[in-house]
């Protein structure tokens, strides 16, 4: 796992969330945080398009938003913890 590589976010499955969380935990540099923000943007977008009755998606949508803001503020570990709550 290399924080310089972006996770391909095609869905919000547990595997994808685990991969993004692991990359978040390894991220320390400006560039890493940019890639993590892009991945969280993708999760936020996908969950935002999920049907309204998909309760997990709605909760994850809010969590991804919060995690995204945490990354922007320089707190990737805390962002990872938010994602790990869904695993």
């Amino acid at each position: 796992m290399n924080p310089n590589h972006m996770v391909a976010v095609h869905d919000f499955s547990p595997e994808t969330l685990a991969a993004v969380a692991a990359h978040l935990e390894a991220s320390t540099e400006f560039e890493h945080l940019v890639y993590r923000e892009a991945e969280l943007d993708a999760i936020w977008s996908l969950t935002g398009f999920a049907p309204a009755q998909h309760a997990d998606a709605q909760r994850l949508h809010e969590a991804a938003h919060r995690a995204h803001d945490l990354v922007g503020e320089g707190w990737p570990q805390e962002a990872a913890a938010l994602l790990r709550a869904f695993l």
Partner: peptide, 17 residues
């Protein structure tokens, strides 16, 4: 709704911020 092709935009905003 940003995608991975928007990485440069994300980086530029973060840098300016």
């Amino acid at each position: 709704r940003l995608g991975t092709s928007d990485t440069a935009i994300i980086a530029m905003r973060r840098l300016l911020l």
